[in-house]
């Protein structure tokens, strides 16, 4: 590799205008605040761009922008913000895996927190997503004996069931589906969790209770109802399909009729 093309970093940097939702506390009203940022490399991730802004703010003695993040490799589900009106921004990925090459020099970027009654803003771009944890607590587990690991082939899982479970297990619980839904509904998230376990033999003992209890917990948290607008699936960084909601509804009807008997 020659010196001129050293590495993969491109030389031109970008100058951007950011309009970011700043909110001091849950009680605070909050508003959009405008910042200018220079020297943004197209190879930076969106969060690295915010790190640069925050360094600048700290040096100027201002409060840095609060945002959630952890793995920064698209697997933990901690990050998430609404970028130009789209949950996780313009690309189908997590905010941490979104790169600044998706934007152009001179762009104005609007950054807002997830919006839903069930996701109250804690500070700036950080929202409280513990409502999703409570949905999981209601049934997103299997009853397994503790002790030494069971023999891997003891329980046979049909290939189709394994694929179906894996597809739904991809959900990282980021909450983008709720943020993107015009009804603040958590149906896509809940369906991913229910379908993941309900199709597996390991999840069979709690199959009926799981779907009924998780749906009840979801309703209790103040998530909206599904009108099949489909915005959730488009926003989902893991591509959980919209038909998963129908799959969960089928499980729900099956469980509801079985319980009554």
């Amino acid at each position: 590799m020659t010196a001129a093309t050293h590495g993969t970093t491109s030389t031109s940097t970008m100058k951007l205008t950011l309009r970011i939702w700043r909110q001091h506390s849950p009680e605070d009203g909050g508003s959009m605040v405008t910042y200018q940022i220079e020297g943004v490399s197209p190879d930076m991730s969106f969060l690295e761009m915010l790190d640069v802004l925050n360094e600048d703010l700290i040096l100027r003695g201002e409060e840095p922008v609060a945002f959630d993040h952890d793995c920064r490799e698209g697997i933990c589900g901690a990050c998430g913000m609404v970028i130009n009106g789209r949950a996780h921004g313009p690309e189908r990925t997590t905010t941490c895996q979104l790169h600044m090459r998706q934007f152009s020099d001179g762009d104005t970027i609007d950054i807002e927190p997830w919006r839903a009654a069930a996701f109250p803003v804690v500070k700036d771009l950080v929202v409280d997503r513990s409502a999703l944890d409570r949905v999981i607590q209601a049934g997103g587990y299997i009853t397994a004996p503790t002790g030494s690991a069971p023999e891997a082939h003891a329980t046979a899982v049909p290939k189709e069931a394994a694929d179906f479970a894996f597809e739904h297990a991809e959900c990282i619980g980021c909450g983008a589906c709720v943020a993107a839904c015009p009804n603040g509904s958590a149906m896509l998230f809940t369906s991913a969790k229910v379908n993941h376990l309900n199709v597996l033999p390991q999840g069979a003992p709690e199959r009926e209770g799981r779907v009924l209890d998780m749906v009840a917990a979801m309703d209790e948290e103040g998530f909206g109802g599904c009108t099949n607008s489909g915005e959730c699936t488009i926003a989902c960084p893991k591509g959980i399909p919209l038909q998963s909601i129908a799959d969960m509804n089928r499980e729900f009807f099956r469980a509801a009729t079985k319980r009554r008997r």
């Binding site: 130009n84 009106g85 909206g224």
Partner: peptide
């Protein structure tokens, strides 16, 4: 129920998909 679940609108509203 749906309007109550989404009380705050986004400032930036791109066209719905």
């Amino acid at each position: 129920r749906d309007l109550a679940a989404r009380p705050t609108r986004y400032q930036h509203r791109p066209p719905a998909r």
